[in-house]
Amino acid sequence: MFAPEEFVSTLTELGITHVVWIPDTTLGQWDEALRTAPEIELVQVCREGEAWALAAGLYLGGAKPIVVIQCTGLFESGDSLRNIVHDYRLPIYGLIGYRSFLNAASLPGDTCLKFTEPVLDAWALDTVFLKDETMKPQFAEHYRKCTEQQIPGICLMAEGAA
């Protein structure tokens, strides 16, 4: 959806300082651009639960992090997410890749299509869903809104493959 340089320039315009992530096939296309971005530090973790806590620490220290993970990582990291954004009410923002949404044929029967949106609803997070290219500007708009309101937020981004 976002070309690598386009994504980096968007994050830079938003003032984001750190991307805490685990790449998947789609998100991983941003790897080199993120690693070489002069104003962004890429912080890779081993498992997605770490990402929310690490981003929280960055926020506490005065940075502006974003969590970038696939929806499978959202499933894995639920307790960490709950703890950070609900127990501690920290306004951490995440971009979640929605596996199989644009191409269900490559992983037939992928239950990401069944559970991703209900799980996000269950976590009661302010979410914007980018279903296609035309909706891309909503990411920055939503991030700015969440930042201004000091609330956590999620940008759910449709992906086409695993």
Binding site: L54, A55, G57, L58, G61
Partner: peptide, 11 residues
């Protein structure tokens, strides 16, 4: 530990 790591990186 990752919570503390975030603080350590930021500061």
């Amino acid at each position: 530990p990752p919570l503390g790591l975030g603080i350590a990186i930021a500061q």
